[in-house]
Design a protein around this nucleic acid. Structure first.
Lengths: 335, 335
DNA sequence: GCACGAGCCTAGAACGTTCTAGGCCGAGAG
DNA sequence: CTCTCGGCCTAGAACGTTCTAGGCTCGTGC
């Protein structure tokens, strides 16, 4: 394990000063093309790699973005993945810190602050830990809009997402669509509210069913829905489509409904939300609202950069719809 | 955003030297209890937090373990989660680096080396990138045994895992068990080999079926299995249980079989491998071999520490079995 | 012939910590 | 009384970078 070469080693090898090597390495102006080449050659010969710690320590700007994510967050993985190129493009490095059942958001944030992250991006912050961040570094809340002073946020446009789902179903010919809400889950109100507004605008009475955020919740809710499909209340037309709060709920729903003898999509169309791995499973094939990880990541990095300049933006990113085979025209298309 | 206080600030506040503050902060010997208390009070008053970068830069040992994981790795999340406490216990910090479709293992490893991680833990290394690590820092390969000089490894004892699955099925009364292998997936041979040995030891002829590592592979394999269950070849008893290479394969299998009119577990018992989130889904409830994330994490940290001292160990961790409702006694228990 | 600016380069300080070497002081041994 | 030793503490160097201030050399304009 030979010692790792430093700036000084490269400088000696190339016969120049350390400062000049530093200039070349940072692609900063102030070196001729000839020496630049010579220094780079020397660096390559020695296998030199700049030491991130020292670099971070000295430069006032660390160019480091801290990212807090949940290991079990359905959609977090995709955003994290998208954050790397987005950050690189903006000249930032990324350092990750996971939260989970055994590691609190606060711990995760603390460790990032210790590394002197310039700004902190928190995916779906769960609590008031954001206060902690506000003290030490500008922060961006992703996926879950929070409005606080000194806090930027980036989220999917829920109204547009629900809108996509409803429009897709209407185009297929559905006229009686219900929303199975997220119960007390965070974000449930935003989606339910969007559904409410959409229905009202179309002059229809919105139909809501109590759901939840887990597969089990979906299986529970399936009973009532099966009834509404098979034997609708007097004077009511049968339900032909539902928009679920999220994919897990939708999957539970589908399973419960099929056990109850309802065919999907022949008897009932189901739309999920998140387009998670769950939705893409070969035996699930759930039509789902897709939040755009690349757009969210780019917006998050952008918001972080803005926040560093003291501007706290609140961005909404447009979702799209991934159509799979859980949706189809209703049993008898009304004319 | 007032400047963050430094050692010097605390020293001034407490009326001592920087070195002494450092001693107190590190809980190092060489300070009286009285001053220790005084310094800590001053630090608390100023809200001092040590700067990890400077600390890392100066101390020869960085006490930093780099962890490379895959964002979509079925089981990685649980191990990462378990690594935090395991590392803390051994006096290490953890820094994460993700790999994924758009970020190669090599990039992930490089960024960790830039931060001067003392040792690198790679979850399920995919390729020869390990050579890269070997140059710069001791490495531990987790989940996927690799035997190279200068490389430690920690993995689940595949033979024991398959053994648990088979024993569970035998106890239920199954006598005709097949293994649906992982095709060309990494690790397939280890599990298939273990099954082979196990069957031979019991004096039975092992039955193998070609599978794969995805749900789709499972759905494909389901056709043949359905035949073996319903109309076994002349002279052969019907198949009553299968052990699948992994959970995804098992889930595809179950779905395909049910579509083919086979009831699970009444007609056929299915055992998966990994005990991933997939297996725990409410509508799946797959009995599965559970790799122990805590034990793997602890072993990985241990191996990293050993590797720092030049000893490269190869540890096997015993798995357990999570019994759910995809397994039951065979249709007619043979006496 | 001289002043000046631009381009290239360097010396040395600085970042916030830890480490090394050593100083001071009081107590106990001789 | 002197010597030594251990406990507490400090000054200053060190880690590997980046930043600041400035130096040298050349070409150009007067």
């Amino acid at each position: 394990m030979a010692k790792r070469p430093t700036l000084a080693d490269v400088a000696a090898e190339a016969g120049v000063s350390r400062a000049l090597v530093s200039i070349v390495m940072r692609h900063a102006p102030g070196a001729s093309d000839a020496t630049r080449e010579r220094v780079l050659a020397a660096a390559a010969r020695l296998g030199y790699r700049p030491d991130a710690r020292a670099r971070l320590l000295r430069s006032s700007r660390s160019h480091l973005l801290g990212v807090v994510f949940a290991l079990d967050g359905a959609f977090h993985a995709e955003i994290v993945e998208a954050l790397y190129p987005a950050a690189a493009k903006a000249g930032f490095d990324i350092t990750l810190s996971a939260r989970g059942p055994r590691r609190s958001e606060e711990e995760a944030i603390r460790s990032l602050l210790d590394l002197n992250a310039e700004a902190i991006i928190v995916l779906a912050p769960e609590s008031d830990d954001m206060e902690l961040v506000e003290l030490a570094a500008p922060a961006v809340s992703v996926l879950q809009p929070q409005y606080r002073p000194r806090l930027a946020s980036v989220a999917t446009d829920e109204a547009a997402g629900i809108g996509l789902a409803v429009e897709h179903l209407r185009r297929l010919g559905h006229r009686h669509i219900a929303h199975v809400d997220g119960g007390s889950a965070v974000g449930s109100d935003a989606r339910a509210g969007a559904f409410d507004r959409l229905m009202n605008e179309a002059g229809e009475t919105p139909a809501f069913l109590r759901g939840g955020s887990t597969e089990t919740d979906g299986m529970t809710a399936a009973g009532l829905i099966a009834t509404l499909v098979k034997t609708p209340p007097f004077g009511h037309p049968p339900l032909t489509a539902v928009v679920a709060f999220n994919d897990a709920l939708a999957v539970g729903l589908m399973h419960g409904l099929r056990e109850g003898g309802i065919r999907i999509p022949e008897d009932l169309s189901v739309v999920g939300y998140d387009d998670s791995r769950l939705a893409a499973l070969a035996h699930v094939q759930l039509t789902s609202v897709r939040q755009d990880p690349d757009a969210l990541a780019a917006a998050a990095v952008g918001a972080a950069a803005e926040a560093l300049d003291g501007r706290h933006t609140h961005a909404l990113v447009a979702p799209s719809l991934t159509v799979r085979s859980s949706t189809a025209p209703p049993p008898a298309v009304a004319r």
